[in-house]
């Protein structure tokens, strides 16, 4: 595309990524969560792909790294749930909630302003799923674009 479109895409890319990470990180106190935030971040990848051509994008978005990222998200999701078995409780038991450790503050009943340091392992789960959806949707967009024939051929 033209130089103006590329400049605007470059300017918007960090803003979209930061907004998506905000949605992922605040998934347990505001509307949103891992899937929605991951989809927002993948939109940034789609924007970059639209602004540049497929050949120019090869150096910026690596398919190998995105696949590693997606697998790491799923492994982290299952791993956080598996730690509960190691602690002597059941699978998917929320061992961090109300414990006073990381993300371990308890909240009073009723409407409150919201505290980031709450929720047990829910923020960790949100981060894991966000990483996975980010990598997965970006890979799908990249591969669907690679099926298009080159211009002029």
């Amino acid at each position: 595309m033209s130089k103006i479109v590329r400049f605007c895409a470059d300017m918007l890319y960090p803003a979209i990524v930061i907004f998506g990470l905000y949605v992922i990180m605040h998934g347990h106190i505001t509307p949103g969560g891992g899937f929605q935030g991951g989809a927002v971040v993948a939109t940034a990848a789609a924007l970059i792909i639209v602004a540049y051509s497929y050949e120019e994008i090869q150096g910026m978005l690596s398919k190998f790294l995105l696949q590693i990222q997606e697998s790491a998200g799923l492994v982290m999701f299952a791993g956080v749930a598996l730690i509960a078995i190691g602690l002597g409780t059941t699978f998917f038991y929320n061992y961090l909630a109300n414990s006073g450790l990381l993300f371990g503050m308890s909240v009073p009943f009723g409407p409150n302003p919201g505290e980031l340091n709450t929720g047990g392992f829910l923020p960790l789960m949100n981060i894991a799923v966000g990483i996975e959806v980010w990598g997965g949707l970006a890979i799908v967009i990249l591969y669907l674009l690679s099926g298009i024939p080159k211009e002029g051929t």
């Binding site: 998934g27 347990h28 505001t30 799923l74 829910l122 997965g136």
Partner: peptide, 28 residues
Amino acid sequence: QIATNNIVTTIVFDYRGFDTLGESTVLF
């Protein structure tokens, strides 16, 4: 029980965690 304000996230990741595990596997 879960110390979270967002009840939907509580259900997605804690009460029905197996559901979300399967869903992530489907996406993968």
